[in-house]
């Protein structure tokens, strides 16, 4: 069961509050989740707090789900940070800016654990 969506990342208050607290559980909770509306969540039968796997052409990440009814159908949001970075597009189209928004993604329920910031970074070295 999977859903084709468009992925965006962005700031939140809690992500901001923990920018200088990145090894903490609070940061993990503030930046390591995926938001979609309840209709989309229903389409892949996940409840808030369940883990989902988000995959793009550039990578994948497992994070818990949150509901945000402000998201239109087919739009998922992960706060900016290491979890979002796992799936964003590094191509800058020749202007220096990678693709942090508007990336085609597939989201599905997952039984995997979400990784911490340190675990995510460890994958890159």
């Amino acid at each position: 069961m999977e859903l084709k969506v468009t992925f965006i990342s962005g700031r939140t208050v809690d992500q901001g509050c923990n920018l200088e607290n990145k090894t903490s559980k609070a940061y993990f909770e503030a930046a390591g989740y995926c938001e979609m509306n309840s209709a989309d969540a229903g389409r892949i039968s996940v409840e808030p707090g369940n883990n989902v796997k988000v995959a793009t052409d550039f990578g994948s990440v497992v994070v818990p789900l949150k509901i945000c009814e402000g998201n239109p159908d087919g739009l998922i949001f992960i706060p900016m940070g290491p979890w979002a970075n796992a799936v964003v597009d590094p191509n800058t189209s020749g202007c220096g800016m990678p693709g942090f928004k508007g990336i085609p993604a597939v989201v599905e329920p997952s039984s995997e654990e979400a990784l911490t910031m340190k675990q995510l970074m460890a994958r890159l070295k």
């Binding site: 990145k22 990578g59 290491p82 910031m117 970074m121 460890a122």
Partner: peptide, 30 residues
Amino acid sequence: GAHFPAQSIARMGKVPVINIDPFHSASTEM
């Protein structure tokens, strides 16, 4: 470390990295 795409950061994994910061950040990890 916290705000670049993973594939870019992976390059930082291969070269010496100096991090000046009051706090332990994702760059600190690299």
